[in-house]
Amino acid sequence: MTRVGFDHDLKHLQDELLELGSMVEKAVIRAVDSLKRRDLTLARTVVDEDKLINAKRFAIEETCLKLLATQQPMAQDLRIIVAVLHTTVDLERMGDHAEGIARVSIRIGDDPLIKPLIDIPRMMELAVSMLRRALDSFIHRDTAAATRVCNDDDEIDNLNDQIYRELLTYMLQDPRKITQATYLTWVAHNLERIADRSTNIAEQAVFVVTGKREEIGSSKY
């Protein structure tokens, strides 16, 4: 086995991707927590720490460029690096969606919630699980697991519909709730986007293994 140094660099690159993934995961969980527990300090932390996610993305991209320029990767090596480039963009955008949720939390401020949050935390848990499993499938080159992630997107879409319908009812019943109810639909939308980008990552996992680019399942949003 030759190319020990390059193999080390490739592994390090994927470790960095996982690190970025866990930063995003933490941001999503904290953003929804801050909303649920009305913890504005936590929400501000999520907003502040988005800078770290952005910086990490740029660092990973830089490493990819360096490897492309210096190692002339071919075949699966090439696919890994290209897939990491795509995935890092998706992760960074997911970080932005987490920040969006935190900003909603800040906008609601000290107002009490119009309803206890049940479906939004469920949606968050599913989205975070999809993110985690998508990255796992990427690292373990597991196309079956990647396909399962994509199939879970339907459930996210259903939850999104359900939340939207419920909030619409609140708005119709009491126009004073329209502002906050609208904010909460934004939160659901952000979570839906996070789940959808997780399916992108799962598709990259398939690409690394098979070399095929394909849309697995399709989001209705």
């Binding site: 030759t2 190319r3 990767p73 071919m74 075949a75 699966q76 090596d77």
Partner: peptide
């Protein structure tokens, strides 16, 4: 051949992991 070879030996050779 250079992005998605079918044979593992080709993959090993073109990615520089041959021998």
């Amino acid at each position: 051949i250079f992005t998605n070879p079918r044979d593992q030996r080709t993959q090993d050779y073109i990615t520089g992991r041959f021998g």
